[in-house]
């Protein structure tokens, strides 16, 4: 059974839904509701947020019943992959307009490559080079996308 801090996963899911529903209600609190005939921007969102909050509560409560039903152990969360894959994407996003395509792709590939536990340095470097070549061939040469390869001279 996959649970965080001993919380059954349906309950965790329900709480997640409740948080989003309540958050949407809170953020949308000052959207005008209007009437059924002249609906304001807040009418439908409020309906949906409340519905999500309610459904989340039901899912969470029903989930508590299954506390004891321990099925086969779920694999542990892949924290390493979360950090490296998403980290690589974020680095790419930060770098693209500042340092150009080559630096961003290299960062993306080198970081995300280590989502894989058993990865040699050479293999990662070879991957980074190949990704750059592919990107150049496909995006720049093939599709003619206006992407700067290197940092713009005088750019920040």
């Amino acid at each position: 059974m996959s649970n965080i801090l001993g919380v059954p996963k349906d309950t965790a899911a329900g709480v997640l839904f409740m948080v989003v529903g309540a958050g949407a209600l809170a953020i949308g609190a000052d959207y005008r509701t209007g009437t059924l005939l002249h609906m304001g921007p807040g009418y439908f969102p409020r309906m949906m947020s409340a519905l999500l909050l309610f459904l989340g509560a039901v899912v969470a409560i029903l989930g508590l019943r299954h506390r004891r039903s321990i099925s086969e152990a779920a694999p542990p969360w892949s924290w390493r992959a979360i950090v490296t894959v998403l980290g690589g994407i974020v680095l790419f996003g930060f770098g693209l307009e500042r340092f150009g395509l080559v630096a961003s792709i290299t960062a993306l590939t080198l970081v995300s490559a280590y989502a894989e536990r058993k990865r040699g340095v050479i293999e990662a470097l070879v991957l980074a080079v190949s990704m750059n070549v592919i990107a150049w061939l496909v995006f720049v040469l093939g599709l003619g996308m206006p992407l700067a390869l290197w940092p713009e001279a005088g750019g920040s």
Binding site: V85, L86, G88, I89, V90, F92, G93, F94, L96, E97, I105, L108, T109, S112, A113, A115, E116, R119, L127, M131, I134, A135, F139, M145, L147
Partner: peptide, 29 residues
């Protein structure tokens, strides 16, 4: 292990090229 970096590459460049927006890359992440 050799494939997913390429998938990532096409994905991020694809998302970026939608509107030339890095914000959308972050949203996708």
């Amino acid at each position: 292990r050799l494939l997913y970096p390429a998938i990532l590459l096409f994905s991020v460049v694809g998302v970026y090229s939608l509107n030339s927006s890095v914000v959308e890359v972050f949203i996708a992440a």
